[in-house]
Nucleic acid binder design. Structure first.
Lengths: 314, 314
DNA sequence: GTGAAAGCGCTAACAG
DNA sequence: CTGTTAGCGCTTTCAC
């Protein structure tokens, strides 16, 4: 048996006589032989691995990651995870990424700024920025329509009688926060409703919980509605307000953003903008793997839909 | 410049004259050269990649995965994710795993049965089973002490006056369910408290929600306490019971298991057995990467601690 | 339908 | 300190 024949048995079995094929398979089973994907990758200049640079925190990213992994498995590819706890680690991570010749790269984090995107360009690795609007124009991107989503939520609360509102963001400098705030302000403005921006300081439950207590204590400044920029923060806000006896929708209208599974949990039952995550992930992978390397538009923006929950059921 | 010199600049810079080193670095920057980790792996028989076979669902696994990824990043290794939605996919996944010559493998799923573990043995790849008690003895494993944990929870509710109890498991055939149930029964038995096993059918919020409504409707069979086998299911149970006007701890004592971050969210504030996940993950990685390939005991069992929440605050 | 040979990009051993 | 050489395990012509 020559190497070549064995290789053919595992990659294009039809090019080998059935008899030989079986003999090779039998021998392989007996010896525990398994083709070496590393060697294959070296030769083929293709790894069948897609990398993802993702923050190591947060319900949203965990959820998205799970979906990427699921869809990649269906495409017989693997997900190589590069997670980081501190934005400062991103540069290091990028250099590591560069060494693995990945079939594609998912850049999903607000910590990936222009400098990092430029570096990624250099790597000449197919890349897609996921829900990171700031990357649009620099790198192909797939994003939910943040502005339209926020507008829809704003319209929703105005419908339900809101005459004053607060937007609770995670981190003010992120492009998602900015877009979501902008959308809200725009829509509310046309109805003569003011909307202040308040920063929770992180995209976490705890941050939401704390900021909610501040809001609750600041009695002068109560609003009819609170638009929270993300579901995870919103859960914290709900609980923080409850702690102070403020209940949605009784005392305030409240919305989230993202459409996490937990938003439908009866304990929260949050009105939120549901991202079509499956679809977003599908778009991202198509752009990464199927494209003739230059399709129509490189920046895809997909609309979300409102999920009406108890928190605005006034 | 010879290949060898360049290689040295990137792997052992001190073996190269500073002048040459800088020249090489400059050239690399200019040409965008980055060493190829695939080729390196082929030569070195070491990939710096650890694989993880994990179910594509569930809060708990997402949480664990995030920790693995974080700790691996610190060790300058990557996580290659093999997730699967159906147990039937596991065999396929294993064959894929086999092809990548990974530095280690984390087997974290009840769907990895004896047959699969045997296959893993064959691969001669350092492996550790994570929170999968059934694997103990077959493959090195790291597991929280399920029985002791359940006993502690059982003792806790007896302390608080429970005279009858129900254990709500996810899937009866899993070894975690069995151990947790067994622990509960053992402890409750010594206090003359009976404990029926009820199967939710999945380790999910929805399954918990549905089973809770059945339990609530079955008025003859009310118990003082419900021990739920996992937090995610417990969240569903809490909400399902609330829907029927049953509130913990007022009407029933309720506990979870796992210690997910959400358990401390004020909306649930669940009494649960908190797994020392960081520690478990650390143990797993040590066994995988640092071991002199045969340390003391291969099956590590780590105790958890009770997190007291509102749901048993009778 | 099968085998021989070259080469993917790197490293380690050995000379110089 | 630097270069030469061989080879990791696979695929891919190109002969036969």
């Amino acid at each position: 048996m020559s190497q070549a024949t064995v290789a053919r048995v595992f990659s294009s079995p039809d090019k080998v006589a059935p008899a030989t094929r079986e003999k090779v398979r039998a021998a392989a089973d007996r010896l525990g032989y398994v083709p070496n994907a590393i060697a294959r990758s070296l030769k083929a200049q293709r790894t069948d691995i897609v990398g993802a640079i993702v923050p190591a925190f947060g319900e949203y990213w965990q959820h998205v990651l799970t979906l990427f992994s699921r869809q990649l498995t269906e495409r017989r590819k693997q997900l190589l995870l590069f997670s980081f706890a501190e934005p400062s680690q991103v540069n290091d991570v990028l250099e590591t990424v560069a060494r693995y010749r990945l079939d594609g790269l998912i850049a999903a984090s607000a910590s990936i700024g222009p400098a990092q995107l430029a570096r990624i360009e250099q790597l000449a690795m197919p890349t897609v920025a996921f829900n990171q609007p700031a990357a649009a124009g620099l790198v192909p991107s797939v994003t939910v329509d943040n502005e339209a989503g926020s507008q829809a939520l704003a319209a929703h609360i105005v419908d339900r009688g809101a005459r004053s509102a607060i937007f609770v963001g995670g981190i003010a400098s992120t492009s998602t926060d900015q877009q979501r705030y902008r959308g809200a302000v725009a829509e509310l403005g046309t109805h003569g409703v003011a909307c202040r921006y308040v920063e929770a300081g992180a995209f976490s439950y705890e941050a939401g919980y704390k900021i909610a207590q501040h809001l609750a204590d600041d009695v002068d400044d109560r609003a009819d509605a609170i638009l929270v920029g993300s579901d995870e923060v919103a859960f914290g806000v709900v609980d923080g307000l409850r702690e102070r006896g403020i209940e949605a929708p009784r005392d305030v209208l409240l919305t989230g953003f993202d459409g996490l599974p937990q938003a439908s949990w009866v304990g929260y039952d949050l009105t939120t903008l549901e991202q079509p995550v499956e679809l977003l992930v599908e778009h991202a992978l198509t752009r990464l793997l199927d494209d003739g390397h230059a399709s129509e538009s490189t920046d895809v923006v997909v609309p979300g839909t409102i999920r009406q929950g108890r928190t605005t059921n006034a």
